[in-house]
């Protein structure tokens, strides 16, 4: 860590966070849900100005969601993962929209795909899915195969066309030609 961010973070935030250097230029910081915004604000003031991505992981056996913010500094070229865990039954998280406005569609997508609620985000309407009424599809308890079988297969659609098969038609046509 060229800018010694690990030591400074420990000094600044103490026992609120849990730091670990994963790789040479990658740092992982775990913290509590209510402390994330403080940490992100501090990181932004420490020249970690770029939020590259925000993602969500479903830890179904631990009954928790994990949110990850990927923060990057152009000066020290370090990549910091800010992680927090949410209760899976009622997952909600403070929106980071006041720190990085472009986090809005990421939060919108996580809301659509996992059902995590972001109070304060102005638009949490559907982004990708068409007319979706089932469980959010990237949760592990949503079985995509069952969904596909129940909606798109021949049985589900009743796929018996009311018209003739083209092979049968061909034979009939030949017969009718002979008949004439």
């Amino acid at each position: 860590m060229s800018d010694n961010i690990l030591a400074r973070a420990g000094k600044m935030h103490g026992d609120k966070i849990e730091c670990r250097e994963k790789y040479k230029a990658q740092l992982e910081i775990k913290t509590h849900r209510d402390y994330v915004l403080n940490l992100l604000t501090w990181l932004k003031s420490e020249r970690y100005v770029h939020l590259s991505f925000m993602s969500c992981i479903d830890w179904i056996e631990e009954n928790e969601f994990e949110l990850v913010w990927h923060v990057f500094s152009y000066e020290s070229k370090n990549h910091i993962l800010v992680k927090t865990r949410l209760n899976r039954e009622k997952p909600w998280m403070h929106t980071a929209i006041n720190i990085w406005p472009h986090v809005q569609p990421y939060e919108q997508e996580i809301h659509e795909m996992f059902g995590v609620y972001f109070p304060g985000n102005p638009d949490l309407s559907g982004l990708f899915l068409h007319n979706w009424l089932d469980l959010p599809p990237l949760r592990k308890d949503f079985i995509a195969k069952d969904y596909s079988l129940a909606l798109y297969t021949t049985d589900a659609l009743g796929l018996t066309p009311p018209f003739d098969d083209i092979d049968i038609v061909e034979i009939t046509a030949e017969e009718s030609r002979d008949g004439e």
Partner: peptide, 18 residues
Amino acid sequence: DAVLGRTEAVLKPWNDPF
């Protein structure tokens, strides 16, 4: 319509707690 104009959930409807 069966695919595009669904009005009910296919497997199990989602009750949004929020």
